[in-house]
């Protein structure tokens, strides 16, 4: 029980201070879990980071589940993942309750016109970072182009795209790249 309370307090803090998604949480986890409390080893943490990136869902929540499970089994996983979600949930609820009125102000509208452009650039840079992680070949370029056309012109469900691409990766890309060495 003591461990769970400690886990809750640590992950509540992590949830409160992680701005901008899962990767921002990594240095905080290193400080709180590995250095201060030595509940986890550095190399175990790196394995968890690598693995959770290939899972569906939010990186921050999945990392919390894996670390919580590592420290204290299923109760640990539940404790840390609930604790990490409570602060952002509360903050967004507060923002959502007051945000609409705030947006009607003309200065806020001008500011958000600028901010929308920044979001476009942020997504573009995320795309660039993701693209650098892919071992590109002509088929994968065709796949990306095909997805854009399939969704914007034919309204294909994006979940179908995910399933089809996972199958392509396993049955086509993997054997192909093994042959190339």
């Amino acid at each position: 029980m003591k461990v769970l309370i400690r886990l809750f307090r640590i992950f509540f803090r992590l949830g409160l201070f992680t701005f901008g998604g899962g990767f921002a949480m990594i240095p905080l986890i290193e400080e709180e879990i590995i250095k201060k409390n030595s509940m986890l080893k550095e190399d175990e943490f790196f394995d968890i980071i690598a693995f959770t990136q290939s899972l569906p869902g939010s990186l921050a929540v999945n990392m919390s589940i894996f670390i919580g499970y590592h420290i204290s089994g299923i109760p640990g996983a539940l404790t840390s993942s609930i604790a990490v979600v409570i602060p952002p949930f509360t903050v967004i609820l507060l923002i959502a309750s007051f945000f609409v009125r705030f947006l009607e102000h003309p200065i806020a509208q001008q500011a958000f016109k600028g901010i929308r452009i920044a979001v476009l650039v942020l997504i573009l840079l995320a795309l660039k970072r993701l693209a650098q992680k892919v071992h590109w070949n002509i088929l994968k370029v065709v796949l990306v182009a095909g997805i854009i056309v399939a969704i914007s012109n034919f309204g294909i469900h994006p979940g179908f795209v995910i399933l089809l691409s996972a199958a392509l990766g396993y049955f086509v890309f993997q054997p192909m790249e093994e042959k190339e060495g």
């Binding site: 394995d47 690598a50 693995f51 290939s54 979001v119 476009l120 997504i123 573009l124 995320a126 795309l127 993701l130 693209a131 992680k133 892919v134 071992h135 994968k140 796949l143 990306v144 182009a145 095909g146 997805i147 854009i148 969704i151 914007s152 994006p158 795209v161 995910i162 089809l164 691409s165 996972a166 199958a167 392509l168 990766g169 396993y170 049955f171 086509v172 890309f173 993997q174 790249e177």
Partner: peptide, 28 residues
């Protein structure tokens, strides 16, 4: 962790995620 299956699936998922995000980016 070291599973070949997971790595195979990821080889398809990574470009797919790029295609999906690119589609959203174009609409926005």
């Amino acid at each position: 962790k070291k599973s070949k299956y997971i790595r195979g699936l990821l080889k398809g998922l990574r470009p797919a995620v790029i295609g999906l995000i690119a589609t959203a980016e174009i609409s926005i």
